[in-house]
Design a protein around this nucleic acid. Sequence first.
DNA 1: TATGAATGAGTCTTCATTCAT
DNA 2: AATGAATGAAGACTCATTCAT
Lengths: 205, 205, 205, 205
Amino acid sequence: MGEVREPIKRNSIAKKNKIIADGFELICNQGYHNVSCVDIAKYCGVSTGIIYQYFKDKRDIFIEGVKLYSDNIMFPLLKIENKKITKDNIEFIMKDIILKSIKQNTMTKKAHQELMSMSCLDKKVLKIFSDKELEITEKLVNILKHNGFREINLNEKVHLIINLIDDLCHETVYHKHQNINYDVLIDETVKLIVNILKENYENDR
Amino acid sequence: MGEVREPIKRNSIAKKNKIIADGFELICNQGYHNVSCVDIAKYCGVSTGIIYQYFKDKRDIFIEGVKLYSDNIMFPLLKIENKKITKDNIEFIMKDIILKSIKQNTMTKKAHQELMSMSCLDKKVLKIFSDKELEITEKLVNILKHNGFREINLNEKVHLIINLIDDLCHETVYHKHQNINYDVLIDETVKLIVNILKENYENDR
Amino acid sequence: MGEVREPIKRNSIAKKNKIIADGFELICNQGYHNVSCVDIAKYCGVSTGIIYQYFKDKRDIFIEGVKLYSDNIMFPLLKIENKKITKDNIEFIMKDIILKSIKQNTMTKKAHQELMSMSCLDKKVLKIFSDKELEITEKLVNILKHNGFREINLNEKVHLIINLIDDLCHETVYHKHQNINYDVLIDETVKLIVNILKENYENDR
Amino acid sequence: MGEVREPIKRNSIAKKNKIIADGFELICNQGYHNVSCVDIAKYCGVSTGIIYQYFKDKRDIFIEGVKLYSDNIMFPLLKIENKKITKDNIEFIMKDIILKSIKQNTMTKKAHQELMSMSCLDKKVLKIFSDKELEITEKLVNILKHNGFREINLNEKVHLIINLIDDLCHETVYHKHQNINYDVLIDETVKLIVNILKENYENDR
DNA sequence: TATGAATGAGTCTTCATTCAT
DNA sequence: AATGAATGAAGACTCATTCAT
């Protein structure tokens, strides 16, 4: 049966990447279950055959897309610069991160929903997201440690922080509960984050 | 074409409910996209035809199932009793709620994933969950008010609390990050919740 | 559109022959309908394109293979040496031929089946086999005549003999009826052959 | 995945049988590999879907056809009546069987070739034919024993006889070697058969 | 000459939905 | 009201053949 082939020529590599890029886009916008491989081929301007030479199936294209694009899209936190974090600027830094995260979330609502939905069902997708989350957690933990924060339950605390930021981003972008004032929610979240870390730095002096 | 009919006879009503109950179970366990209407009919012990007399399509059965069963399953918080909440017992009460929530989560992992996944994609399902969340938020806000908690940003704070509890429940169902100690996570979350509400009761006396 | 080209350079001729040899082998072992031209190209270590420069299609390769290899494989009878055949040694000679035929049948069962199967369907293949059979028939008829056998119905008799030997070879390759003792079958066949020719030599003296 | 269903209603049973009858006919006439399931559905005047409800795949239809029709078509010998066979009438009876077999061979050449071809490739088809052959062999052996024929190598001899008759039928219907006089071939075959059995009855008195 | 990437028509197979009974 | 056989459009996937390099 059809072996998956890896393109060698520069041209073909470009084609494979185009299939990932355009195919991922199409899947995200139309919905994984509403799009067929023929649709993807048409959308990418290639033949159906070539799809099956470079990918095992539709899922495979999607997974590649997730791998490639989840970075930029899902976890802006990853790009935290190595700023000096102190008990004095932590509130400001966190609010900055949150605002940037919200702004950078460039995906369409539909695309985001697709990704969320698939991450619930597909082990591979879930794994990619989990790994990304782990990466950020470790990064943030290290930054905090380098800045003199104490280690008590630091892992769990950072995990909580990331969850809070994630929830916030998703909500401000999509949910929009009517009786929630999102500016207030942001401020409360920042306060919370600061609070979470308080015992890790307050006895520092 | 086939109008959806509402059963009148007691017998028929029972049959419709059986389809919802069994169909929802099957969808949750096998996955929405892995189950056909013929499968559902077989599983419910009815004919294919009858499905289309009581329901528009597969989605319709699922929605009805979500409406009927999401309560018990997804939001144990709804069952908070009207306990007296004070600054002294709030920590205990919250921990109790969380532990109960985790324990009461009787769905299989697969079912949980299906529901989560569908709630990302399907407006109706999302609406049901949103409404449920709103209901709990309001309930909890009221309880807190009745217990003398001040109203500053109370809506947003309760919203945050519910998110935190939700995240915790989901995680214990699947993520299971290896480097996270879940007992610690629970305690930190409880501390956080207490902290969130502190300024709403600390000046109470 | 692509004309089939006949290679001129020694190198190219070798390549064409390699395609026939390896391609025929692959088809015989995997089954004509289970092998694609791309498979053949890969197996032969050449490009897909080149296949279509030397051959019209897959069938063409197969036919060439049959032409080239059927001799050795299918009709060991062809190699009958010009022994002196008399009424006294005919039984011995025939048994020898049969045993050699069975032994020489070096093809795999699978290959044998493929060839048989294709010979039923493909006029060209059938023609090649028919011609081979005709050739053997004539050869054997001539040998017998040279050895003083009378001509009465000799063609038909030799034809029968060849059929009998062929059947025997095929059976030892696959049928293998359980309740048949194949040693007995061989002896009975030899007796039969001798019998067939009896009236062509018994009045000889 | 699609379970094969067995029709219950009389109407459906008729439909399944129609698919076997017409499908087998189409496959035989057009060639197994030249016919798709969609072709069969069209030819039978049914939908593609129903094909997959009653059959696993194309091969399944073909096998059913072989089971159903091989009797009438391939082995007219099966219908040997329980005539009294003696050394005096055996020649007449055998010639009669052969002539009837040739006459009864109602299949088209194409169909016959398909069956032969498939029996080389497909274990199930081969099995059906083998079993049929075994059945005839046993039947004939028993008839001969009942008529006082001795048992020496009787199995193997009858096997040879059946092979001879089979070969003869196939040839007279299709091959038609030019330099073979088929009337002569028939007579020689009859003589041969009588000869084969001679030692089983000649010492009878 | 030779390559192997690309094509797209064609095949298999499923399933939501209808309809005769 | 209920049945379940039947439909056929649609999706997944293959492969003989072409063509730019």
